[in-house]
Design a binder for these strands. Structure first.
Lengths: 236, 236
DNA sequence: AATTATATTATGTCATACATATAATGATTT
DNA sequence: AAATCATTATATGTATGACATAATATAATT
């Protein structure tokens, strides 16, 4: 029983949603019922207010929410126009190490590792000869004289960013862009057990060689091994 | 050259951000500079307005954005209190097939497949004997008489939801919950090439058997095969 | 026809007032 | 003294009206 008093039965809940909540709901409903598509414009604020029987203030706040999650975009004189929602856009502002708790940061660290292994099939499917050439170039840049830590990190990012691009999956790519700073933050923070160095490390060069075979299973195993040091830190 | 007129050189951009944009920025800045933590409350709207030299309306809209992305939560009488951001919360409203374009939907279909394969290590790491028992129960419920399509789908969802839970990764779990309806929608829509049936299918029961060995590599291969029909539809 | 003024319109911002819920305080009871 | 209840103060929620601003449509000019 989830009520404080055992004798207290369920009597139904009261609608505590604010006017803005309701207005937002109705507007989304309006969009769906009218089968509106990208580019269509919503009725102007005053009309919405009049029709829903609330003040313009409420409508503005409801619309602002829709703007914030990227569903609409407001143009002066024209109104709120539907846009192809930048699905992950709303995440961008939240994805900062400073405002996330440790558990979440760790989850994201994991997420990135998982994504990279999980997208093997999509990489192999879409990779072109030019892509391979490009990856090879990046992989070769290491060792070319300067082996300072910062350069290594940059090459690391370039190489893996390229992999995401090859996957031709926009969501994946955007996720990666947002996850990368968090990953690096966690990597360098004291959040995880200290780094370990294992024997059978797969280098970027070797990854490229595997990619040349266009064998997804083989690549999946290779990238998993490549990331093994990271995995070890969370798997213990 | 990205300017209409070749003769037009770069003269620097003008800050076109609205007052709300700036206010939002300053508030986030305030949070970081003061090293505020979960539970702390922001100054009240009127104080923020006075200090930033804008109207309360602007402050309210800025705060509303932060509320929408789940960074703060406003309590009457108290103010805007920092909350552990529900990172994916803002996605919930956008994740509806009706408002996403086909390309994005397909990307999400892929994402789910990738996640499931990519999280193999985390499942194997965290799985308990009870988890295995539970998975076994779900797997056995299939075939117990009723083989209607709807039941199959429900068992499918139950089984895979359980897998995500086992991963003990909240982000992964939340993503899955949001992705599932989209996945089903795409699965049933005419968006992908028609379904194919392959020979070597790995069943839920077999997956459980593999999990008993606690071998992440083996499980990764198994789940990849289990999802092979889905993969085939996008890989062609 | 092309450019330049003008008017119109819908959003952006401001100011003020009041409603409402809740934290804090004080009064009452046991 | 502790617990309960009533009161008050306070910060957000909502409403209203006004004006600023930018973009569109229209008219005027070249």
């Amino acid at each position: 029983m989830e009520y404080p008093n055992e004798n207290m039965g369920k009597i139904g809940t009261i609608d505590t949603s604010s006017l803005v909540d309701k207005a937002e709901e109705r507007i989304v409903q309006y969009i769906q019922e009218n089968k509106m598509v990208i580019g269509d414009v919503l009725p102007k604020e005053l009309d919405l207010a009049l029709n829903l029987g609330v003040s313009r203030t409420v409508i503005r706040e409801a619309l602002l929410r829709l703007k914030t999650i990227g569903l609409v975009e407001s143009k002066k004189h024209k109104g709120a126009v539907l846009r192809n929602p930048d699905v992950l856009g709303s995440l961008r502002k939240v994805f900062h190490p400073s405002i996330l708790d440790d558990a979440t940061l760790k989850d994201m660290f994991e997420l990135r590792l998982g994504l990279e292994v999980g997208m093997a099939d999509f990489i192999v499917k879409n990779i072109t000869d030019e892509d391979i050439k490009e990856l090879e170039d990046i992989a070769n840049q290491v060792g070319s004289g300067d082996t300072a830590q910062t350069w290594q990190v940059e090459d690391e990012i370039r190489f893996h960013s390229k992999l995401y691009k090859i996957s031709k999956n926009r969501i994946l790519l955007e996720l990666q862009v947002m996850l990368m700073p968090i990953f690096n933050y966690v990597h360098e923070s004291g959040l995880l057990s200290s780094e370990v160095v294992t024997g059978d490390f797969v280098s970027h060069k070797e990854l490229v060689e595997v990619l040349k075979t266009r064998d997804a299973d083989a690549y999946r195993n290779a990238i998993r091994k490549h990331l093994n040091n990271h995995f070890k830190r969370i798997l213990g």
